[in-house]
């Protein structure tokens, strides 16, 4: 029952990652990311209830604070400031991306089918789910042109890793988790600053893709 519920939340996170691929509006992407992070926080909270561990409550709270509120807010501000005309641009169009991603998800389920994780484990299916989310995040990073969507891809990937960390092993030690949160928030802030610099350096609004930065 409990593990089913965790799997359900994991499935929501995966579905939102796929939705991320099919989104073609920047604001919508950020909203999807915030919702996805909310589900990750929910799964951490539920596991915390189950194992009655205080560390997981703190971790869930930090996820909620940082990934559902602070990072999406920063990204919204950055998008507003940039006044982007053209929305998400891709190297591979959305239909093909969805086809590729679905096959990647199937492959990651097949790959992990024989792995006997052993030990005390909350849910076996979370492992392939989080592996798929990692692949989806990596795919977004390589298939999108705009720096800001690449950043969203990275954050999606990071959500997949956090899901694996909490749902497979009852969470990493608290000090390590706080360190990871710190790194993520600093990294995201710095990446936003660099995006800002990119906008300053390149005047023409349509040249603001990474592609145009490569000579």
């Amino acid at each position: 029952m409990f593990s089913d519920f965790i799997e359900l939340i994991g499935a929501f996170v995966l579905v939102l990652a796929i939705l991320q691929i099919s989104s073609d509006r920047l604001f919508f992407s950020v909203k999807v990311y915030a919702l996805q992070s909310f589900f990750v926080a929910l799964s951490i909270f539920v596991i915390g209830l189950y194992s009655s561990s205080n560390d997981l409550y703190i971790s869930a709270f930090l996820t909620l604070l940082i990934k559902v509120i602070i990072i999406p807010f920063t990204l919204f501000e950055a998008i507003k400031e940039m006044k982007i005309k053209r929305e998400i641009e891709t190297y591979i169009n959305i239909t093909n991306s969805l086809m590729i991603i679905s096959s990647i998800i199937i492959i990651s389920f097949i790959l992990t089918r024989y792995i006997d994780l052993g030990g005390e484990i909350i849910s076996k299916k979370i492992f392939p789910i989080s592996l798929s989310i990692i692949f989806v995040g990596a795919f977004i990073m390589v298939s999108r042109k705009k720096p800001i969507t690449q950043l969203i891809g990275f954050l999606t990937l990071e959500n997949g890793i956090m899901l694996a960390a909490t749902s497979v092993t009852y969470g990493m030690p608290l000090i390590v988790e706080i360190g990871i949160f710190f790194d993520v928030i600093v990294g995201a802030t710095m990446a936003t600053i660099i995006i800002h610099h990119i906008n300053e350096t390149v005047d023409d609004i349509d040249e603001r893709t990474v592609e145009n930065f490569e000579e």
Partner: peptide, 28 residues
């Protein structure tokens, strides 16, 4: 703060963060 330098720093933060995120999965 030149065009190339900013491009390089963007590449650096994205590729290295991606790689290190995979490393985090290894640590887990």
């Amino acid at each position: 703060h030149t065009k190339d330098a900013i491009k390089a720093s963007w590449q650096y933060i994205i590729i290295c963060s991606f790689g290190i995120a995979l490393g985090l999965f290894g640590v887990i």
